[in-house]
Amino acid sequence: MTEQRTDRTGAPVHVALDATRGISAYTVSLDDGTLAGRADFVDPPEAAGERIFFHTEIAEEFGGRGLAGLLVREALAESIREDLTVVPVCPVFAKHLDKHGEDYKADGGRFRRPRPADLAAVKQATEGGA
């Protein structure tokens, strides 16, 4: 999955899924290939059909261009297409769903509040146990 979009400056950017590492992520890159940010997630094997988003980061030099919002919207749209329930541990995802959750559900999305087991799954993945 690679989607071309434009940021707030009108510059082309690309949002892509990077599942080549232990922790998967949606990434946003500039047209020249420079990585500008990422939204990390895990798909816990014990909770099939769920995706836990736990960290979103945009490089400081690319702040203010709306890239975090692009990442969140693309990741959520892909979660709908894959019929996944989103678990927003990341404050960026949680804030977006607090504000736009009803619209997300109306588009066919599902999400739920994080539980202790979700935090444990993130901890396991980030400590190399996944």
Rank of each mutant, 00 (worst) to 15 (best):
A121L: 09
E57T: 12
H55Y: 14
G66L: 03
G108M: 04
K99G: 03
A47I: 01
L119E: 15
E3S: 07
A47H: 13
R51I: 13
A94I: 00
F53H: 14
G109V: 06
L84G: 06
G63L: 05
K123G: 15
M1W: 01
F53Q: 09
G49T: 08
L97T: 03
Q4E: 11
I58T: 12
R8T: 04
D43F: 00
I52S: 10
P44Q: 07
A16P: 00
D98R: 12
L76H: 02
R5A: 08
F53E: 11
A75Q: 01
G66M: 05
P45A: 14
R73I: 03
E3L: 07
M1K: 01
K123L: 14
E46M: 01
L71H: 04
G109P: 01
F111Q: 03
A36V: 00
G128K: 02
L84K: 15
H100W: 12
E127S: 14
G128Q: 06
R65A: 05
A68I: 00
E3M: 02
V86A: 13
P114H: 07
I23A: 14
A19C: 04
I52A: 14
R73D: 10
A94G: 09
K123H: 15
T27C: 10
K95A: 15
D98V: 04
A36F: 00
I58A: 10
T56Q: 13
R8M: 08
H96G: 00
T126N: 12
P44N: 08
R38E: 13
R5T: 00
K95N: 14
G109S: 06
G63Q: 09
H100L: 12
T6C: 02
T20L: 10
E78S: 14
R38F: 13
L17Y: 10
V28Q: 09
F93T: 03
D118M: 10
E127W: 07
V87W: 09
V89Y: 05
